[in-house]
Simulated scan of single mutants.
Amino acid sequence: MDSTVKPRLILLCGLPGAGKTTLAKRLAREIPAVRLCPDEWMADLGIDLFDEPTRDRLERRFWKHAQELLRLGQTVILEFGFWALSEREEKRVRARALGVPVELHYLAAPIDELCRRLEARHAKGEPGTVSISRELLEEYTKLFQAPDADELALFDAPPPGRRR
């Protein structure tokens, strides 16, 4: 790793089908960075992706690991979805306490497009995917707290020369 490049924390925020994994994989290759994706780990371990207690434990463990990696100078991408403002705020504040810049990438798409992407992804049998009905996705949109311009302004921009 180039010693002049400062490690950073990258948070990917969005509903299922918004493009978080696609962006995370590209960034992980280009930066390079360690990408932590609960869906993929749960699928690999044969855990139901809707098992929220296990997901919460895994995300807490990933966060501990991410902090260790950041202290060691490694950029980390957390692909958790970050539906709640409080989750995003906690990660931003804690990473900044480590002296690390924090990016928030909010990915959004209309519900029809999310449904189309999810159906296509599930039909291909991509790892870490499950069938998500339109009804469930509509319920998720009620729970999701999209970041507004004021919140987005609290985060760091990607370094010059790196595309989003």
Rank of each mutant, 00 (worst) to 15 (best):
M1Q: 11
T4M: 14
K6G: 03
P7N: 01
P7D: 03
L9Q: 07
I10F: 07
G14N: 09
L15I: 12
A18G: 14
K20E: 08
A24C: 10
A24W: 08
R26Q: 14
R29D: 13
P32M: 06
V34F: 06
R35Y: 10
L36N: 02
L36M: 14
P38K: 03
P38N: 06
A43Q: 07
G46E: 04
D48R: 12
D48K: 12
D51F: 13
E52Y: 14
P53I: 10
R55G: 09
R55C: 11
D56L: 08
R57G: 02
L58Y: 07
L58E: 00
W63A: 05
H65Y: 10
Q67Y: 11
Q67I: 12
R71L: 15
R71Y: 04
R71F: 07
L72Y: 11
L72H: 11
Q74R: 02
T75P: 00
F80I: 07
L85W: 13
R88Q: 03
E90H: 08
R92H: 01
R94P: 00
A95K: 02
A97V: 01
P101R: 03
L104R: 03
Y106N: 01
Y106T: 02
P110G: 03
E113K: 06
L118H: 05
L118M: 13
L118F: 09
E119Y: 03
R121C: 08
H122T: 10
P127S: 07
G128L: 07
T129Y: 07
V130C: 14
V130K: 14
I132W: 06
R134L: 06
E135L: 03
E138P: 12
E138N: 13
E138T: 15
E139T: 12
T141A: 10
D148K: 02
D150R: 13
D156L: 03
P158V: 02
R163F: 04
